[in-house]
Structure formats: structure tokens, C-alpha cells
Amino acid sequence: MSNRLHEPGLALHVEDLTVSYHGKPVLWDIDFDIPPGVMAAIVGPNGAGKSTLIKSVLGLIPPMAGHVTLFGRPYRAQRKRVGYVPQRSSVDWDFPTTALDVVTMGLYGQLGWLRWPGRRERRRAMEALAMVGMQDFAGRQISQLSGGQQQRVFLARALVQQADIYLLDEPMAGVDATTERAIVELLQRLRDEGRTVIVVHHDLQTVRCWFDWLLMLNVRVVAQGPVEQVWTAENLRRTYGGQIALLDGDTSITAPAGPAARASGAS
């Protein structure tokens, strides 16, 4: 292995990725690419391995096989260019700390050993909080924030990293409609600045109006590509199986009336 670049033209390149927990495969032979500058959604049913996929990209879970590169290099070499927003439920929100403090944590990696965050770090964290409209809550203990506010604090912690690729795990889960709108607009602004935004998304209704790239996942990759090409009844059915009952009647799925189209009448 040298430091030759592998697929440098792709923001994210995943090849042959297989991950298992206790001998049970969770991701099987995943191959996918995401070009730079898109806003991509990862969708799939519960337990499809979406969070696991994000964590494997970040090197948090050792894969059984396969590799991942970001702009041609492994994650270890690109750490500073990647911002990560974990699922909100993954931490204890009763932890004794403030909103500003949590955002400052986004800078710990850049700060280096033995150094305490100072005025400069606090200022940058404040700016990130202002970007998500949370500047008035900087000193608030995090358990005193609503779910949507906690989510925005998490988002600000990633923003402060000023990354080129953002990976977000269900940032819109348990968030009210106004906050959801604000988050989406912020993410779209990031994309318009040329950054790559990858979002694990649970709401099929909004996939087509918000995202321009789509990865459909259920242990294996079902489909990937530009949303308008990938969004078909057949792909949805193959991803969700019988579980699909989430689509409005007006969802203009281009394929002939398949099981998904029929199921859509139910909602």
C-alpha cells in the first residue's frame, strides 16, 4: 500500500464492505459511490444497517471485509475533512454540560493534546450555534433543551468542524416541522457551497424534494444514483418489502402500478 489515491474523484467510495455483529451479517458486500457536492439520502427499513454503514465509514466498527475511501484516501487520513452527527439517542443528555460546551467538543480533535479550549474556540462555537439559531441557548444545560434544540446543538458541533463531507444519522428524527425545515435549508446551503452532505433519512415523503442523490439499503445495496432515476416502485418494494405503506397517493412513481403503488393507497 502506498499513498496513491484510490478514486479521488469521489467524495465517498465504499467497496466490498461487509460488517457483522456476533456472526450475524448486518451489511453484506456493499459497493457504492457518492460524488462530491451532492446531498445524498440513505434510506432503508429499521435494522437495515444504515447507522452501521455510517459508523463503518468513520472507522468506528471494524469491517469483516472491504474498504472505504474519502476523496481517495482512507478515513484516518481525512478525519479533519469529515463532520459527524450521531443519532441523538446515542448520548446521555443528562450529562453535566452546556450547549456551547457540546459544540466546542467539535474542535477537540483539532485542538491537540493537553490544550484546553480558549476564547477562540468558544467564539467559533458561538458562530456555529448562531448558524443553527441556538445562540440564545449557549449557556443552557443540555437536558433543559427540547429534542429539536438538542438536534441543532449536535448539528452545530459538526458545523464547527468546517468539514467537506458531513455524515448525519437521522438528524430529522423527533424534530418539529419548523426545525426540520431549518435543518434542511442549512444542509442545502452546505451543499451549495460545494460540500457533500450524506443523511440517513427515515421519511420517504420528503426524499424526492430535498435530496439529489439516493442510496437504498437493506443489508445489501438495493439501488443508488440520482434520485429521479432510483426512485421507482420496484426499488422501494425491494428495499422495504411488505412494510411500505408510507407513500401518498400523489407520489408519481414512474414505474407501472406495482405492489408499492397499491400499498401507497393505504396511507
Binding site: V82, Y84, V91, G109, L111
Partner: peptide
């Protein structure tokens, strides 16, 4: 700050290297 981060969010801490 390292101890604080691994107590609050170990996953994020590892992603930070």
C-alpha cells in the same frame, strides 16, 4: 477535554481520532 468527551460521546471521540 479528552476524558470529558469519551464520557459524553465515545463514538464521536473515536471519530475525532
Amino acid at each position: 477535554k479528552e476524558f470529558k468527551l469519551i464520557c459524553f460521546d465515545p463514538g464521536f471521540a473515536r471519530a475525532q481520532g
